[in-house]
Design a protein around this nucleic acid. Structure first.
Length: 935
RNA sequence: GCCUUAGUGGCGGAAUUGGUAGACGCGCUGGACUCAAAAUCCAGUGUUAGCAAUAACGUGCCGGUUCGAGUCCGGCCUGAGGCACCA
């Protein structure tokens, strides 16, 4: 068979008959399947594209046969930097480059036989499309959702361009290697943060995969806490911090403002001015990513100013540090080093006091406890790398040195005394005092319940100097030095925990009971938070607050190749929106444009374009020269597909109501957080102003894994592991590539390319072709195949709707093998196999189907599984003895447990294993397994 | 650092709710057909022992729950992807 010819033949057939064009009529149920439209890069279609388009294509083709009115559209997300770069280099207009790329992509897609409705095709760069993107921006503006704000951007002084975080990684421009600086720019913003709660709640009206929802939830980042006002010593001003842990306020020993915080200059004392300014400058050279990545070492400087802790009026120093971000919360924090890891690190470095206000609770509380203070001491011998323990053997096991603190004694003195008394060692150096632990226990020797506050102390042994031990009569134990591994033998919760603290110094971030906190003492975290919020409210210095990490959307880009923002800056009227009837605002038709000196968009250099009249007063004015981000056009393209040629609206309400929403949306993992969130925000806004029928227009969202190179690495030119789908189609045929990509592995996971496996799929299709020679003249189905046939119908149907593409193919292989075992099969048998395979391998199945005299599959029906045919009356189940399979038995479906048990007991190999043993019990799980427990 | 996600034969991967681990395919070994090769067909293929029946071991590591764990729980290790130090 000539693949090329039959592929062409059927692709032509489908085109000519407009088989896949969707129309908004008839009584078929509409179903909207969407794949992310690609960015048509110069590299051409990637085998990764083929994977997701084929998967959705199979679903679309099956559902059409099942009688759905399927909409499966395709278009182009063609604005973006690469096209712009390419165009600058080659002195052409980017639209020319894009045109070429789209042509290539479309030819490639067609060669793979995807059943897209090409009548709805558009590109985000078409003026007929971006007219509506601009129009929608104007709606945002008119509803107070768009505003200008000054935002720092990554700026490369050499390239004179604004860089993405990605291109500015490590503070170095990816293109030219110069260091990147932060530059303030006035930018258009969309008030996305106003939608935080709605975007969170809206997830309930979607069927997104759980992990996709989680991605969205984490991005929105809701946290409940409080804001607290801190007075500044010697100033009238107050600053506000946001915290989720207001219960730890008594432990706040300093505050930190973001270097960009507006109060910094004002409160910095003259002797700290230079340091602070230098530090601010230093930070301005770092982008957010750097602040994140190079976070190993905390940096910061003291401003010289002090804040007043509102709960106890203590003066605490105010620092600035880049570990506090201006963009999150209030740009200021109260630092509680005892109970926050970052604060702990910072406090250690700057030698700021650490006050513990929460202690962990171990053991079980009991009535009538006796309270006392005590210590647990850990002594480390560096030379031998061993720890000092005492072994009580069966009277209490291995422990460290413990003891009760006497009235006039410090914890350290107590520890030293106890160590000397119990072990004799007396030449010690204190390494650290560990957080206190609140421990409950029962002492057998005293028959009493105790509640102790235990202080952990960590010592280093300086020398083996010893004094005489001083032991009571009942103190019978061995003093033993043990390795770290043997510390596992310390089972006592208090001692084990103390050791853990010693090994991992840091903040105690968990729950516990409060200490050193006046009215909070004794309360747990939750209660203490509530009490503290009450206190703050009463004293007018704070209240409960919900905070979201999601920020407003920076909507400006200093680029040429994007949708122009339709705003006009008038010296008299300020910012004025363009008249809607003047849209689209076209990009100028020039092939030469250079970036400006000062980071404005290249459009700023094109004065013909920039200079215009104010729509309000008619005076001279200038256009906004920034363009929209790539995310804009892709935030609503799925709505346009519902009504792609509408010239009066972006899409009519009627058509949107007809299609209802996107039923199934597939795309890459990398877009499940941001793109999806932007699109949802856009839709929710349109819904709120009455322009779309639902608040959520996407029902199910799933994400696919990447196709990696055969070396298990991401495909890239530099690694030389790129597979071009054209080559595969040429050598093996489109159907082989399609089947292979469906079979290669779990659709939702990455999978490496294997040409060997591809050949296996070619062999499978060859077998399908050969089976045609087995077709006989009998009517109906071959009886002995009917069980498997109906099971396969059910399996393929289930798998194609549950992303089990690989197992769908494998079940078809099983069916084909069963056919192959027969001397002959009927036409009906063969036709059924072809229909089931058609969604994945449409060309070859149509051809073979035609050869046996049937009308085209694409115009026929999907088979229905006959449930009666797949009922079996016998079944093989396993018999286990003590959980190990020792044999199998054949049971009838109607057998009761008694009968199954008897059969199991007769099984030859089972008899061997239960002979002479006592049968404890027999577990019979009907239809599944028998397990005989013997002793 | 945080979030997400994974780890099963020589390889890609199956195992819908805790119930016969390794379906299906690749690769490999042996055989048939052929002058020969390709293609195709037949048999075998987790490891170890055994002619075999069978037995022991086996789903990243350590521990737990259970009659029974790839699947559930606790603790680690490693890979991949994402990120805006989220207080």
């Amino acid at each position: 068979m000539n693949n090329k010819e039959i592929e062409k033949k059927w692709q032509k057939y489908w085109d000519k008959h407009k088989t896949f064009e969707a129309h908004e009529n008839g009584n078929k149920k509409p179903y909207y399947i969407l794949v992310e439209f690609p960015y048509p890069s110069g590299a051409g279609l990637h085998v990764g594209h083929v994977r997701s388009y084929t998967a959705q294509d199979a679903l679309a083709r099956m559902m059409r046969l099942q009688g759905y009115n399927v909409l499966y559209p395709m278009g182009w997300d063609a604005f973006g930097a690469p096209a712009e770069q390419y165009a600058i280099k080659n002195h052409i207009h980017p639209k020319e480059a894009v045109k070429e790329n789209i042509k290539t992509f479309k030819t490639q897609m067609k060669s793979l036989g995807f059943s897209f409705d090409w009548s709805r095709e558009f590109s985000t760069t078409d003026p007929e499309y971006y007219k509506w993107t601009q129009w929608q921006f104007l709606q945002f503006y008119k509803h107070g959702m768009a505003y200008k704000d000054t935002i720092p951007v990554n700026w490369c002084p050499t390239c004179k361009s604004v860089l993405s975080n990605e291109d500015a990684a490590g503070g170095v421009c990816e293109r030219c290697g110069s260091s990147v600086v932060q530059k303030e720019k006035s930018q258009w913003m969309l008030r996305m943060s106003d939608y935080s709660e709605d975007l969170l709640k809206g997830l309930n009206d979607t069927n997104f995969a759980e992990r996709v929802k989680l991605g969205q939830i984490n991005w929105i980042g809701k946290s409940e806490g409080a804001h607290i006002d801190f007075k500044i010593d010697g100033h009238d001003k107050k600053f506000t911090v946001f915290t989720t842990r207001c219960d730890t306020l008594y432990g706040a020993t300093y505050c930190v403002l973001a270097p960009e915080h507006p109060y910094v200059d004002e409160i910095t004392t003259s002797e700290h001015k230079k340091e602070v300014n230098d530090y601010k400058k230093e930070c301005s050279f770092k982008n957010d990513l750097e602040r994140t990545e190079l976070n190993k070492d905390k940096t910061g400087v003291f401003t010289g100013a002090y804040a007043i802790n509102p709960v106890n009026n203590s003066k605490i120093p105010i620092y600035i540090s880049d570990y506090v971000l201006a963009t999150y919360g209030t740009g200021a924090i109260m630092a509680v080093p005892a109970h926050d890891d970052r604060d702990y690190e910072f406090a250690k470095k700057f030698d700021i006091p650490i006050i513990q206000v929460l202690e962990e609770v171990t053991g079980t509380p009991h009535e009538n406890e006796t309270k006392k203070n005590s210590i647990v001491a850990i002594v480390y011998d560096e030379k031998e790398d061993k720890y000092l323990t005492i072994n009580w053997h069966d009277k209490g096991g291995r422990l460290f040195i413990g003891g009760t603190i006497k009235d006039d004694e410090s914890a350290v003195d107590c520890a030293k005394r106890e160590i000397a008394e119990e072990t004799g060692y007396n030449d010690l150096e204190l390494i650290s005092i560990l957080p206190k632990i609140n421990h409950h226990y029962y002492a057998f020797n005293k028959d009493k319940y105790f509640n102790i506050e235990s202080t952990g102390l960590f010592f280093k042994l300086k020398s083996y100097n010893k004094v005489d031990q001083n032991l009571d009569e009942d103190e019978v134990f061995d003093v033993e030095w043990v390795s770290k591994k043997q510390i596992d033998e310390v089972k006592d919760e208090l001692h084990a925990k103390t050791f853990e603290y010693a090994m991992n110094p840091g903040a105690m971030v968990g729950d516990g009971i409060h200490i050193n906190s006046d009215f909070l003492d004794g309360l747990n975290k939750e209660d203490a938070i509530n009490q503290m919020i009450e206190f703050l409210k009463e004293h007018h210095c704070g209240e409960k607050q919900v905070n979201y990490k999601m920020r407003d959307w920076i909507f400006s880009r200093q680029r040429f190749w994007g949708e122009p923002i339709p705003m006009i800056d008038c010296p008299k009227c300020g910012w004025v929106p363009m008249n809607e009837e003047d849209l689209p605002l076209l990009l100028p038709d020039v092939a030469e444009y250079e970036p400006t000196e000062d980071g404005e968009s290249p459009l700023a250099n094109i004065s013909d374009w920039v200079n215009c009249k104010c729509p309000k007063c008619g005076g001279d004015a200038k256009r906004e020269t920034d363009t929209m981000p790539n995310w804009a056009g892709s935030s609503w393209y799925f709505l346009r597909f519902m009504d792609a040629h509408n010239t009066k609206e972006f899409a009519s309400m009627d058509k949107m109501k007809y299609w209802n929403r996107v039923d199934w949306y597939n795309g890459g993992m990398e877009h499940t957080a941001r793109h999806l969130l932007y699109a949802r925000f856009w839709v929710q806004f349109l819904y709120n102003i009455g322009l779309v029928p639902h608040k959520e227009m996407i029902w199910t969202r799933v994400s696919h894994g990447m196709v990696l190179g055969s070396d298990n690495q991401k495909m890239s030119k530099s690694k030389g592991n790129v597979i071009n789908p054209d080559d595969i189609v040429k050598e093996y045929g489109a159907d082989t590539l399609r089947v292979y990509e469906m079979f290669m592995g779990d659709y939702q996971m990455d999978a490496p390319w294997s040409t060997d496996s591809l050949r296996g799929c070619k062999r499978f299709l060859d077998k399908i072709v050969r089976l045609k020679d087995k077709v006989n003249d009998n009517d109906g189905f071959t009886e002995s195949l009917e069980v498997l046939q109906n099971k396969t119908i059910k399996k393929v149907e289930y798998d194609l709707t549950h992303m089990g593409y690989n197992t769908a193919i494998s079940s078809l292989m099983i069916l084909a093998n069963a056919y192959d075992d027969k001397d002959s099969i009927t036409k009906e048998d063969y036709h059924l196999l072809l229909v089931l395979l058609y969604p994945t391998a449409p060309h070859i199945t149509e051809e073979l189907n035609e050869m046996i005299g049937y009308s085209p599959i694409c115009e026929g029906d999907w088979p229905v599984c006959d449930e009666d045919k797949i009922q079996e009356d016998t079944r093989e189940i396993a018999v286990q003895v003590n959980g190990k399979v020792r044999g199998t038995i054949e049971i009838h479906v109607q057998d009761d447990e008694q009968a199954i048990e008897e059969k199991a007991m007769e099984c030859e190999n089972v008899v061997k294993h239960i002979e002479g043993k006592e049968i404890v019990k027999v577990i019979v799980i009907k239809g599944k397994i028998v397990n005989i427990v013997v002793r």
